[in-house]
Design a protein around this nucleic acid. Structure first.
Lengths: 233, 233
DNA sequence: GAGTGGTCTAGACCACTAA
DNA sequence: TAGTGGTCTAGACCACTCC
């Protein structure tokens, strides 16, 4: 009763997905093991394994050794966000990218920023503020702390010509990071720079990154009015 | 010169990652092909393939047939968001979940909702409004359209007992969906329900889902003040 | 045309864990 | 302790694409 004579893992994945979505296999139900499915489809177990691993990554099934593979009861949907550098994000919209450095100076970060970076010391970090523009209009306000001890080369970079965002992505290796999305009311300074009314609701992305536990940068990116971050399920 | 005598794809993936992050292999550089790496590590090509596929998924390398594998020039960071049902989200925080249906009635959706769902007709949809609570405090306002033609069973469900969110996740299969994140100022009604001041900046998630091009539901989830959605890079 | 990654196979052993 | 998924191997053929 194999539905496909092409024994590609894609075709098998599609058939298994169909059975799940059409409720042939109910949520929570145990499905046949890899060997049995391989026999049914007339292919090697490794091929079935590849298909099932893919479905597990997508959250459609749960797999456990010995316990077997079950259709997920409450499929936790996973959305993958692609986070490009800002210039690319704007150019991908066919808009002209603009950039302006607002300020750049060495300072000791306040405790909240130190906390996010898990950096106890009183070291000075490079604090930069910059504005990214799309077609000449304010697009994103970037408020950033950079660990100059970890990235000393940043001292030689002319941040009025290239954004810290772009330079760091290309030059600062990182191993881990956390990211948070939220909303904030525009304060005086932000409203001024982004040219929006005070208290306008703005979309905020905060990101902190490390290279093997050494903090690299902590950035708050405040998008102008009306920004929507999209993805597919 | 193999660095690990354990030939697991994980250990190989780790070593390749180290070479990329430490700039032994520069961004944009072509790395050795699978056969050569397999020989270097003393393992089968399939094992190297597994490691490289994993790194490609993560965006650290670009792979093309014939052209080989290159270290990504601008690593587009990918963040995966896990989107659970609201009850689970709250219970995972060790808070007590509460739920209240505000309204539920059949209506023709306005053009913006029809547009999002790509549904031209003048069919009536079930419009529901509900409040989710955490430890008794307003957590999330859910404003939803449900395609009763696609999911007639929803008519028999007592939505004052189970949220549409939870019922649909468990009972309405879906194949595709789009999701958008943004910020909005609390309007009178929303401010009232969520018990926040007018104009408070609120985090919004909008989601539209289909089952094979048949719209299932379109929902706007407005989180109470201070909500942050987090993930790791 | 030739070199690269993409995939499949048949078999094997291992790691985990439910019973 | 037995059954399941997790992984690895050695080999093969294929699909794509750069030259």
């Amino acid at each position: 009763m194999a539905t496909s004579s092409i024994h590609s893992w894609r075709s098998i994945e599609g058939e298994l997905r169909r059975r799940i979505q059409s409720r042939v296999w109910q949520p929570g139900q145990l499905i046949p093991n890899e060997s049995d499915l391989a026999e049914e489809f007339g292919c090697a177990r490794a091929t079935v394994n590849r298909a099932l691993r893919f479905l597990a990554e997508q959250g459609l099934v749960d797999r456990k050794r010995r316990a077997g593979t079950r259709v997920t009861l409450h499929p936790v949907r996973k959305a993958t966000l692609h986070i490009p550098i800002v210039r690319q994000e704007i150019e991908d919209r066919n808009q002209e990218y603009g950039y302006a450095l607002i300020s750049s100076k060495l300072e000791v970060p306040p405790s909240d920023a130190r906390g996010r970076m898990k950096h106890p010391g009183g070291d000075k970090f490079l604090k930069t503020e910059a504005l990214h523009l799309a077609d000449g209009k304010p697009y994103l306000f970037e408020d950033r702390w950079i660990n100059v001890k970890a990235i000393p080369e940043i001292g030689k970079v002319d941040l009025s010509q290239i954004s810290a965002n772009e330079w760091l992505v290309a030059n600062a290796p990182l191993t881990t990071g956390v990211i948070a999305f939220s909303a904030m009311n525009a304060t005086g300074k932000v409203a001024d720079v982004l040219k929006v009314a005070i208290n306008t609701a703005l979309f905020v992305v905060e990101r902190t990154t490390w290279d093997n536990d050494v903090p690299i940068t902590d950035v708050k990116m405040i998008y102008a009015d009306g920004y929507r971050m999209r993805t597919v399920l």
